[in-house]
Write a protein that binds this DNA or RNA. Structure first.
Lengths: 258, 258
DNA sequence: ATGCATATATTGGTGGTACCATTGTGGTAG
DNA sequence: CTACCACAATGGTACCACCAATATATGCAT
């Protein structure tokens, strides 16, 4: 859905933001460096100062740049200061994350989702469980007609994290889900993965319902590990052994574990 | 620093964004609801359409609203869809997070920082260690003159997470650090806490240097627990028993299970 | 009364201009 | 060399006119 929305909005601001960010990369602007004035930039990109300022406002809100009145626009430290949602926005406007960023994202998601499982075990209500079960049923239905459960998979994970009743965690993980939406769609193009996923989901929900945090954690770890390994292989990375989960005794390649 | 920067930028867009968000709250807009047109909003807030659109562009980039051409502006689902950085931006413009959000943030930070410790043990370079030690020395210097180490504390945590060489993790945690900057300053107003913190930092760095992930994790857990308990007490919450980590007496090892 | 076609109003998107307050700079007078 | 002042450049803001697309209203013809 977020993609569909993005398509709607796309015609506007975001294309310009992308061009601006590419401009930064091309020109090798250093963090802290002052970049051309608004009027110059507007002319350079062939847009009015108005449209440019809107794009800059968005970039400011994402902490990519900062504007100092009567001085200029300055590039912030890119990798560390700019918000994670910069990546989300970029991916929404068609700039796919790099393989590196994908694997890094999975690495960050894992401990968060595991924490979500543990918290859900502590705090979930029967309503939360109902919501999860409803999504599980819907997933089964879609699987039975060989549909793509990408959206429902995200809905499940959202519902799960909402069961933690921690709105900050919901927001953070929601950003991750948006970031990986395209990849999720590819992943679930294979219906078999949908079945695997559905099975794991049911087990996780059952563990949460029984308030068995250890089991829920273990199941989620395994569940996420599948995706991590999959993308590690697909992207041909060597990061796989450095994933977000701790050695679960077996299934760990000591190959490059430190 | 981010606060200082915010002060510089403050005069501009952000005040308007805050007013808009307050307007949403006051009017009890429901998610998905269409809100007044740009021209109406501009007049309502007594600003030009231009300034309003810049604020909207920022809110769009944070996924608080979405604009559909030839249709209107629509409010997105607030708690789950809007980005975590919305909170960061709000705090930068003087809207402090609620106690609830503070404790929730700590709850999310904890597993991330623990993961950062583990990853740093695997991947940190001697340069990373040097950077950390340099900050530690600087912290000692400031403590010796009874200064406030809030900024340095953040620098330490940033340097630590940078030692993971995971840029996504850096971005996410950086957002958290920005969000809690004001509180950190309050916390370290008491020099004793600075000393406690410095000691814990040294132990953590030592553990990381020895690649002892279990110990680093344990130390970080304890370190964060101090802050969690502190803020739980200060904010008078009952959430403390539900925090991201277990009671210290239980001495959890890295990923074990719980 | 119905139904289709046209006109109108409204939407967000964009470019342009003029102006403000502030600041940095550079030249000039002392 | 210093002090002062004028000027240029900055981002911040407002207002305007227009566009393309849409939803709504209108009106005409059947």
């Amino acid at each position: 859905m977020s993609t569909a929305v993005a398509k709607i909005v796309d015609g506007g601001e975001k294309a310009l933001m992308r061009r601006i960010l590419e401009f930064f990369k091309d020109r090798r602007f250093e963090p802290g460096e002052r970049l051309p004035g608004e009027r110059v930039l507007a002319e350079r990109f062939g847009v009015g100062r108005n449209a440019l300022r809107e794009a800059l406002a968005a970039l400011i809100s994402l902490r990519v740049i900062e504007a100092r009145p009567n001085s200029g626009i300055y590039l912030r430290h890119f990798a560390s200061e700019s918000s994670f949602d910069t990546l989300v926005l970029l991916s929404e406007m068609g700039e796919p994350p790099s393989p590196q960023e994908i694997l890094e994202s999975i690495e960050v998601r894992s401990p968060l989702e595991r924490e979500a499982c543990r918290l859900a075990c502590k705090r979930c209500t029967s309503d939360d469980i109902d919501a999860l079960r409803q999504i599980l049923d819907e997933i089964d239905r879609v699987i039975s007609v060989k549909g793509n459960i990408a959206d429902l998979d995200q809905a499940f994970h959202v519902a799960l994290v909402e069961a933690t009743h921690n709105s900050v965690l919901v927001r953070v993980l929601h950003s991750f889900y948006c970031l990986s939406m395209e990849r999720r769609r590819v992943y679930f193009a294979n219906p078999m993965r949908g079945q695997e996923s559905a099975k794991a989901h049911r087990q996780i929900v059952a563990a949460i319902e029984k308030r068995d945090a250890a089991k829920a954690d273990r199941l989620m770890t395994k569940h996420l590990d599948n995706a991590r390994v999959y993308w590690g292989v697909v992207l041909g990375s060597s990061l796989d052994a450095a994933g977000g989960s701790q050695p679960r005794s077996k299934r760990r390649r000591p190959a490059e574990d430190v």
